[in-house]
Simulated assay, not measured.
Amino acid sequence: MAGAVNKEVSYEDLKALLEKRQNLFLVDVRSQGEVDKGQIPGSVHIPVDTVEAAFAMQPEEFKAKYGVTKPLMDAPELVFHCQMGKRGGMATSKAQELGYVNARNYAGGYKEWSEREGK
Rank of each mutant, 00 (worst) to 15 (best):
Met84Gln: 12
Glu97Cys: 00
Asp49Glu: 10
Leu98Ser: 10
Leu14Gly: 08
Val35Gly: 04
Arg21Ala: 14
Ile40Phe: 11
Lys7Pro: 15
Glu52His: 08
Leu98Trp: 03
Arg30Ala: 00
Gly88Pro: 05
Lys119Leu: 14
Asn105Tyr: 00
Glu61Ala: 14
Pro71Thr: 13
Met90Lys: 12
Asp28Val: 09
Tyr110His: 05
Gly33His: 03
Glu60Gln: 15
Leu24Ile: 12
Met1Ile: 01
Phe25Glu: 03
Lys15Ile: 11
Leu18Ile: 12
Glu115His: 12
Gly89His: 01
Leu18Arg: 09
Asn102Ile: 10
Thr69His: 02
Ala53Tyr: 14
Ile40Glu: 14
Ala4Gln: 05
Glu77Lys: 06
Ser10Cys: 13
His45Pro: 13
Phe62Ala: 15
Val29Glu: 00
Asp28Gln: 08
Tyr100Lys: 01
Glu8Phe: 07
Glu8Ser: 06
Val27Glu: 06
Lys20Ser: 13
Ser93Phe: 11
Asn105Asp: 01
Pro41Glu: 12
Val101Tyr: 01
Gly118Lys: 08
Leu26His: 07
Leu24Pro: 11
Gln96Ala: 07
Asn102Phe: 11
Glu115Tyr: 06
Ile46Gln: 06
Asn105Thr: 00
Gly108Pro: 05
Ala103Gly: 05
Asp28His: 07
Val29Trp: 00
Ala91Ser: 09
Ala16Asn: 14
His81Cys: 02
Lys65Trp: 02
Leu72His: 09
Val5Cys: 05
Glu61Tyr: 15
Pro47Phe: 11
Ser43Pro: 04
